[in-house]
Design a protein around this nucleic acid. Sequence first.
DNA 1: TTTTAGCACTCTAACGCTTAGAGTGCTAAA
DNA 2: TTTAGCACTCTAAGCGTTAGAGTGCTAAAA
Lengths: 354, 354
Amino acid sequence: MTELSERQKIILSLVIHEYSSTATPVGSHALVSHYKLDMSSATVRNELAALTDHGFLRQPHTSAGRVPTEEGYRYFVSRLTRASDLPDTTRRTISHQFYQMRNDVEQWVRLAASVLAYQSRAASLVTPPHPEHSRLKHLELIATRGRQILVVLVMLGGEVRQRLFTLVEPVNQEQLSQSSERLTQLFQGADVNEMRARLAQLQGLDADVVQWVIDDLLAADAIPTGEVYMDGLTNVLSEPEFTGSEEARKSLRIIEERSLLQDLVARTSAGNTQGGVQVLIGGEGTWDELRQWSLVLGSYGMPGLSTGTLGVLGPMRMSYGRAISTVRFLSGLMSDLMAETNLDENSASTGEMN
Amino acid sequence: MTELSERQKIILSLVIHEYSSTATPVGSHALVSHYKLDMSSATVRNELAALTDHGFLRQPHTSAGRVPTEEGYRYFVSRLTRASDLPDTTRRTISHQFYQMRNDVEQWVRLAASVLAYQSRAASLVTPPHPEHSRLKHLELIATRGRQILVVLVMLGGEVRQRLFTLVEPVNQEQLSQSSERLTQLFQGADVNEMRARLAQLQGLDADVVQWVIDDLLAADAIPTGEVYMDGLTNVLSEPEFTGSEEARKSLRIIEERSLLQDLVARTSAGNTQGGVQVLIGGEGTWDELRQWSLVLGSYGMPGLSTGTLGVLGPMRMSYGRAISTVRFLSGLMSDLMAETNLDENSASTGEMN
DNA sequence: TTTTAGCACTCTAACGCTTAGAGTGCTAAA
DNA sequence: TTTAGCACTCTAAGCGTTAGAGTGCTAAAA
């Protein structure tokens, strides 16, 4: 990649900044007057021509201003963006909101989606933490009514799954409690495969239940992420580039088709990186539906145990600085929260009621 | 409301049908030729004029065809629509899908949203069953790690709530099991208020937990419905009436702002009824955001115990017959499923694995 | 060598004008 | 009561014109 002169870098940044707020091609004159540049529009024009040659800008037509290309954004994000931290007061406000809803992972996820959408003025998406390789921590069987029992699985990452299960014959809680204990001891720390291996030692009711548990875990592991929480969709649809119905519809497709998001989330390694945050610009040639979009992705949780993804989905001209810093901050905050919740040595939070 | 002649009713139905598929004003000539009517366009024109006088049709401008008014749709839905049942094969296919995922309420809700969107070719929304007046069926405390315990509540409606809870001091499973049993016996069948009344009898850890349980139940009761599952949004955004960005954005607002939906769901009594299904046309003068929309709402579950809402959200010219019959069918099917799951006498479903 | 003023050139988007045609309401005949 | 005929209305599409924003190039100025 060719190196740019200092002045070219400045001008590229300005074009991106200007285009980001106006969404119309930016011309030499507009740049000079708007940013009070110390040079004439002709000089700027020359630089713009150079940047266009480099492939960082393009002209919609001969007599129009310049628009950043994907390459332009990539260069900008990887070299020219100094992802600033969020203001201190903002950080504190957000932290406070999270600490309000202590220990409820689902609420955290929702809150994260909401905060992310608000801060980035774009659409946000957050997946709940997903166990990377589910290991059982605790299993409990609860009699509810008749032949119905509730199976509760507590995984090592702190994730809880539960499901109703109807037996062939009624059992009482006594029996179930014994089974729970026996099963927990047998399978503690085991992942799906290990459970399958140890399955032979069981028979009767226990075997049935375990079979189900394994199936359930398998299913959950196969689907990378269940619900994806989203927020701020209207932020994005009001942007001028999605003014035509066609584009609006396409954009909703992205959101409705979970598979695409899952695909993306799974391949977070592609694209630009900025302090642990991934930036995908214009679909990176791979995802056609995203040609006009950019995606800023981060992850949170406890690596190796249980992690989730959070990101901002916006038009290609979105404010990357703001998106990146918000994602990074939330990513760290949520990781901390989850770690706290899961540590024995934790001395911060208590369950006391007011 | 003035009575219409038979022929006027037919013509109104035809106009609505035609407009429903073309989305453009329908003229006298188009009606005659398209439906091979046994009269001339002039006759039809006279009837159209009469229907316009009645307020059931209107003309966008002097030389345009007719478009049904809200009043027109109301008349049509309440008198002219004979909500046919879904074809037998369709019903069987759908039932089969539901029985595939036995006993998992969340999956049912999702499936319902998906089926509803597909069958009605519009957007669907389904709320999970909400306990009308939560009564505790069973309470279980599970030790997970250190001072953390998992509180699982099984409500009478079959709904399950669980939350992690951090204690001030560690306890072992032994103690917790005893507490579980004690608490379950004490509070079985009690709603929030009764629990509060019986609270005095407790102290120590138990009191703490119960306090929390009560708070949680209160919170859950206050919020009418948590997640609303939706599907088929793109079905609707591709419709010509939402072609301008402004309308598309507005429509998303409806979907994003849960409060509106909750408001609607809470006041399902307003509007037209068709065999237990509510039809709201054009916002019924109350909801401005819905001026272009119609909503077909039904409920499912066990009245008095736990009920949810399901509905179709589409353009005002949507196919009411199809929407109504699908909502009605799903409403019945899901009620049956939930009843089955909750009956002791139930002899149909088993938990056997294949 | 770099910057800038000046200028001819290009392209879009907006405006106004015209027109085809779809649809109406009315009148008078069937 | 229905229908044919006709004058009338209104929209949407097509088309030419034009203002203006922006460019690239050239030659003078720094």
